[in-house]
Simulated assay, not measured.
Amino acid sequence: MAQSAVPSAAQPRESAAEPRPVPLRLPVREVLPWAVFAVVLGAVLIYFVGAEQGATSLFGGTWVHEFTHDGRHLLGFPCH
């Protein structure tokens, strides 16, 4: 008997030939501390690159400004 190229409802599909993807489970309790750490670190970096200068300066001198100078221009923060 010849087989058709299009499977019909009468012909069962072989489930062993096509593996189904298993969903990835991420436990929130394990990811949350790292997510909070990444957000805090990102906020500190944005502060030092974008605002550590002038009246809001935490450190005296211009060494932080000079250290982050190219990063300021790359991210579009004015510094001159």
Rank of each mutant, 00 (worst) to 15 (best):
M1W: 11
A2G: 09
S4T: 13
S4F: 14
S4P: 13
A5D: 10
A5G: 14
A5F: 09
V6H: 07
P7D: 01
S8P: 05
A9R: 08
A9H: 06
A9F: 12
A10P: 02
A10H: 10
Q11D: 12
Q11I: 11
Q11V: 14
Q11F: 07
P12M: 02
R13G: 05
R13C: 06
S15Y: 09
S15A: 12
A16P: 00
E18N: 10
E18K: 06
E18Q: 09
P19I: 03
P19D: 01
P19H: 02
R20D: 07
P21L: 04
P21A: 03
P23G: 05
P23K: 04
L24R: 15
L24Y: 11
R25A: 13
R25C: 05
L26A: 10
P27R: 14
P27Q: 04
P27N: 08
V28D: 02
V28Q: 07
V28Y: 13
V28L: 14
R29G: 12
R29D: 03
E30H: 10
E30F: 11
V31W: 08
V31A: 14
L32W: 13
L32I: 05
L32G: 03
P33Y: 05
P33W: 01
W34P: 00
W34Y: 13
A35E: 00
A35W: 09
F37N: 00
F37A: 14
A38D: 08
V39L: 14
V39K: 04
V40M: 08
G42F: 04
G42H: 04
G42N: 06
A43R: 07
A43E: 05
A43Y: 10
A43I: 02
V44I: 13
V44F: 14
L45A: 15
L45V: 11
I46C: 11
I46K: 10
I46Q: 08
I46S: 12
I46V: 15
Y47A: 01
Y47N: 02
Y47E: 02
Y47D: 01
Y47V: 02
V49K: 04
V49Q: 02
G50S: 01
G50Y: 02
E52S: 01
Q53D: 08
G54Q: 05
G54N: 07
G54P: 13
G54A: 03
A55H: 07
A55G: 06
T56H: 11
T56D: 05
T56V: 10
S57T: 10
S57M: 07
S57H: 04
S57W: 00
G60D: 10
G60C: 01
T62H: 12
T62L: 06
T62G: 12
T62V: 07
W63N: 03
W63K: 08
W63G: 01
W63C: 00
V64K: 08
V64M: 15
H65W: 07
H65M: 05
E66W: 12
F67K: 07
F67H: 06
F67E: 00
T68W: 14
T68A: 12
H69P: 00
D70T: 10
D70M: 02
G71L: 15
R72W: 08
R72C: 13
R72F: 09
H73P: 00
H73C: 02
L74R: 09
L74K: 05
L74I: 09
L74S: 02
L75P: 11
L75N: 03
L75R: 03
G76Y: 04
G76N: 04
P78Q: 09
P78F: 10
P78N: 10
P78D: 12
C79I: 01
C79M: 04
C79A: 15
H80R: 08
